[in-house]
Structures are given as C-alpha cells and as structure tokens.
Amino acid sequence: MSAQPMHIHPYERNWMVFSAVMLVLFATAVSVAAFGMGIQVPAPEQRVDPRIVATDPNSPWSNPGLREVSPGKYDAYILAHAIPVWEYLPKEITVPAGSSVSFYVTSSDVQHGFKIQDTNANFMVIPGQVSKLTIKFNKPGTYNYICTEYCGSGHGIMYGAIIVTP
C-alpha cells in the first residue's frame, strides 16, 4: 500500500475526463428542457383523502370531467379507480385543437398510472395525492390515455381517450 497519490494511466485519465464532460452535457440538456422549455415533472399538489375523494360533494372528482376555465384553457379532473371496475372517469374528453388542458388526476383506491399517448403527460396516480400536469394539444386526433401501473386484473383494459377536434 502506498501513501502517494493514486496512479492513473494517461488513457484512463483522458477517458474519465471525457465521460465526465459527456455527463455534464447530458445534464445541461436536461436542465435546459426542464427550466428553459418548461418540460417539468409533477410537483406536489394538495393531499386528499382517497376514501371520500370520489363521493364528497365538495370534491371536484365527485363530478369528474372537463371544465373550460377560459377560452382554450381547460381543467380536467380525472378519477382513476379499480373498484367497481377498472376505468377512468370520464372515459372521453373532447377539446378543440390548440387547447391547453391541466390534468388533475387522483385515485380512490389503488395506485394507477396516467399516460397520454404521443404527449409528455405520463405520471403516477397515487391515492391521497393529486397529480397535475398541463398539456397543450395542437394536432387534431385521438389521444388515448392509458393506465401504466399495475392496478389489478383489469389493468390492461383501463384507458380513455382525448378527442382533439380541428
């Protein structure tokens, strides 16, 4: 054993510097997308009680669905549940192209996932928590939202659709 500083082969030293630079570049690209372009991951919302979130008349998830806040701007309260059947409420949402929709999704029983195909909306739905992301739909078409976390036997049939009209 030696008390001298560690010996590093010049090739290996260069390689270490090079890989560090590559990782820094990746980290920069990620930061630019996150803080510059607003492609962010969900942040904590308020917590709810999963036992009553679907039934309490004061809870928007007792009446899940789309709300037009102002022209072209929507709030979508979506409830995911496995009981009595595996489904999202509502099963279908229709918005005009160019709309920006804020999704507030929660679960009244087990954990679910929520992924809207061909968009950046993809997050966990955890009982007791509210997941929120805002997505702008520019291109008309049908965008399925599917469950991406195992939630029991019906996990594979759990989905809904956003119809973006021209």
């Binding site: 997308a33 607003g38 492609i39 968009t119 950046n120 909306a121 992301l133 997505i135 702008k136 520019n138």
Partner: peptide, 11 residues
C-alpha cells in the same frame, strides 16, 4: 431527448 422536446411543455 428529441422525442421529449418535440412533445412540448408540461407546465
């Protein structure tokens, strides 16, 4: 990464 960028912002 390009797929991510092309799908736009989330906030």
């Amino acid at each position: 990464y390009m797929i991510l960028i092309s799908r736009g912002s989330t906030i």
